[in-house]
């Protein structure tokens, strides 16, 4: 059960969390979230292929759905980044600490 696929999933996901915690650039944070989402997609596919009951097609459909939804959320996130940059003049999240006003 513990094959290379699972290790890749874990590695990608941890990389995403690491970046989310230690990076200060808004754009990097979005990339980190993307990375975690892709790790999850891979995880769903691996789980479907290992189940053995012909569930691979189901997980493939789900992954395609996830990717589609993610495109939309990423687009919104990027537009938020643009407006945040207009508002604060920097890409640093420290500038966004106080959400008031």
């Amino acid at each position: 059960m513990w094959n290379a696929y699972w290790i890749a999933v874990l590695f990608l996901f941890s990389l995403g969390i690491y970046a989310l915690i230690f990076r200060h650039n808004l754009f990097h944070l979005i990339l980190a979230i993307e990375l975690m989402a892709k790790a999850l997609c891979l995880g769903v596919l691996v789980a479907g292929s290992q189940h053995g009951g012909g569930l691979l097609s189901v997980s493939e459909t789900m992954v395609i759905t996830i990717i589609l939804i993610e495109v939309a959320t990423t687009a919104i996130a990027l537009s938020l980044v643009v407006s945040a940059h207009k508002h604060t003049g920097s890409m640093d999240i420290a500038a966004l600490r106080r959400l008031k006003g």
Binding site: I17, L20, I21, F22, R23, H24, L29, I93, A94, L96, R97, R98, L99
Partner: peptide, 11 residues
């Protein structure tokens, strides 16, 4: 209000 701390707490 720091996103990094919040992400660490979520993790």
């Amino acid at each position: 209000g720091d996103i990094n701390y919040n992400a660490a707490a979520a993790a």
